[in-house]
Amino acid sequence: MPIETRIANATPAVSVTARGETVPVGTSNADAADDPAIWRNAADPAASLIIGTDKKAGLYVYGLDGKVRDFLDAGRVNNVDLKDGVTINGTSGILVVASDRNDPLNAKLALFRLDPASAKLTALGTVAGGAGEAYGVCMYRDTAGVYAFIVLKDGTINQIALDTAGGAASGTIVRTMKLGTQSEGCAADDRTGRLYVAEEDVGLWRFDASAAGGLTPAKIAAADGKNIVADAEGVAIAAIGEAQGYVVVSSQGDNAYTLYRIADESYVGRFRIAAGVVGGTEETDGIELMLGDFGPAYPGGLFIAQDGFNAAGAQNFKLVAWNDIKASLGL
């Protein structure tokens, strides 16, 4: 179906503009930039960092000014997530996990430590993620430990218990779930114990994130060509309080982003990122969102979206203030 028809059928979306953007990834004229993750510097919010994947080449570290602080050649890493306060080689640190598809038949997790002072990544090794092509990844932490969910291209979701206490990466698959078709984006909510996964042509699902949880998902929303226009891609969480907030999914088919309320999973609204000081976004894969102070430009929170058609020729990531999204949607 032509994109004009898909947009015409879709639920209307309000427009916001990005306040910043990253330097394009190094792989030009290709579908390369894919997924971001955010580390918030509580002591100096404006010095927070962004991790972004070039799925043909490796991992970038950006400042909020969009400039490259580091690049690590990690090969074909697709999605990325991180957790602060994880024990790494006996000390608390920032653990970065990427879905590694250098071997398309055998998925892996590639683990790294992020040094917030130097903005450098250090490789910790890889962990087996199951048979199949690695696609999505998201991290989760509860009282039992730290986990990564790796979403394989065929819709298999493996939950992996991670151990970096000794420095080197190790992990064990503790649970396997399955969606029927190609899936990628995911986000896990430490507060509520919920895992959200986007099945590209079907819609948004919710699982119990506990390692002892059930295997059957609940459908939150269908990719019906209205609120979500296939593909359903990136997933992010706006965490408010102990259990409130929103789940956001990239409605890639009509260049929009759709919000659902966490409390009752009801539809909230949709927005697009239009051209302004920097360009807009199209065909977004990965998204990330974190609320809180990120300095003068992003005082209420930061939303990041991959831009599939950046005018510079190579794809990049657009940075949007959560306050602008809130105001546009009347939240």
Rank of each mutant, 00 (worst) to 15 (best):
P12R: 10
V14H: 09
S15H: 13
S15W: 00
V16Q: 10
T17N: 07
T17P: 01
T17I: 12
T22N: 08
V23I: 12
P24A: 11
P24C: 08
P24I: 09
V25G: 05
V25K: 00
A30Y: 04
A30M: 07
A33V: 00
D35Y: 11
D35N: 15
A37H: 02
A37P: 02
I38S: 06
W39F: 14
N41H: 15
A42V: 15
A42H: 11
D44E: 15
P45T: 12
A46V: 14
A46D: 14
A46L: 13
A46E: 14
A47Q: 13
L49A: 03
I50E: 03
I51G: 01
I51S: 07
G52K: 11
T53P: 03
K56F: 02
K56V: 07
K56Y: 01
A57S: 11
G58R: 01
L59F: 00
Y60G: 02
V61N: 02
G63L: 06
L64M: 15
D65A: 13
K67L: 08
K67Y: 05
K67F: 08
V68Q: 11
R69D: 04
F71H: 09
F71C: 07
F71V: 10
F71R: 10
F71A: 09
L72W: 01
L72A: 11
D73P: 04
D73E: 12
A74Y: 04
V77F: 02
N78Q: 14
N78V: 07
N78D: 08
N78T: 05
V80I: 09
V80N: 03
V80F: 05
V80K: 01
V80S: 07
D81P: 04
K83Y: 04
K83D: 04
D84Q: 15
G85W: 04
V86F: 02
T87I: 13
T87V: 13
I88S: 05
G90N: 15
T91F: 09
T91D: 06
T91K: 14
T91P: 00
G93Q: 06
I94Y: 04
L95H: 03
V96M: 04
V96C: 08
V96S: 08
V97R: 03
A98V: 06
A98P: 09
S99Y: 00
